[in-house]
Amino acid sequence: MSIEIHNLKHVYHPGTPLETIALQGIDLSIHMKQWLTVVGHTGSGKSTLAQHLNALLFCQEGTIKVDSISLDPRSKQLRTVRQKVGLVFQYPEQQLFAETIYDEVAFAPRNWGVDPDTVAERVENALVRVGLNSSFYQRSPFHLSGGEKRRVAIASVLSANPDYLVLDEPTAGLDASGRKDLMGLLAGLREDGLGIVLITHDLELALACSEKILVLEHGRQLTYGTPENVIDSLLKRHVYGLLLPEVVQMSHELFLKGLDVPITGDEFLLAQVLIEKVRK
């Protein structure tokens, strides 16, 4: 069970003066219960990649398979793919439209033709997973805080029972506690078996929570590996638009100046090592 991408290429407006190569030469695989983060500068192709994962866009070269189903505009299984891969767009709260939270979350399963009892079960389940109890059912989604709206938007994707969840900049505009809650929620979903694909600018977030990170630069795959691989590669070569977290930069600078410190994004570890060294 995995999403396999091989040599993906996507060009917007091919053959016109507006022609733009958004992605090329992308190879990656995403498994269930795995957390992949895609980072890159604005315009690096992150959102274009996200839209390929649930067949909103189709590759012009290369292949994408979701659980062995080839994504092709003529495929008869696109519905299945769109159910398997839930996509949470940038600023998802702007897509809320129903009068009550219940109806909002029930929209997807009702649309798939699921029977009413199962709809009720799924809505309840999805809202529990995002931490909203039954007192929210009849409230209007428009009177919620920014963080709560985003939870409703995620619940309305979860109610389709996806195996993979793709989130495009889900923390944009959220405050510190909202960000923390959301990351905790995603970690819980991964524990439940979902494959998580997080799209973000935030390397600090990516390094803290992912098993694999894909770094895009101008539509090309620059690095694809573990957080440690990515730190190594970004220390060797500056990537347009991305900056390593300041704590990582600092540990690297101190290391280059001759202090024997680990290169890390963990400020507590770095402080501990520095305090021990200086005290000695």
């Binding site: 405050d175 510190a176 506690s177 923390k180 600090e204 977290p245 300041e246 704590v247 600092m250 994004g265 400020e267 507590f268 770095l270 402080a271 520095l274 305090i275």
Partner: peptide, 17 residues
């Protein structure tokens, strides 16, 4: 509802020590 940036957390740990 604000978060102390990691670099400031590090600064204050080193300062307090």
């Amino acid at each position: 509802g604000l978060e102390v940036p990691p670099i400031v957390r590090l600064w204050s740990m080193l300062k307090n020590a």
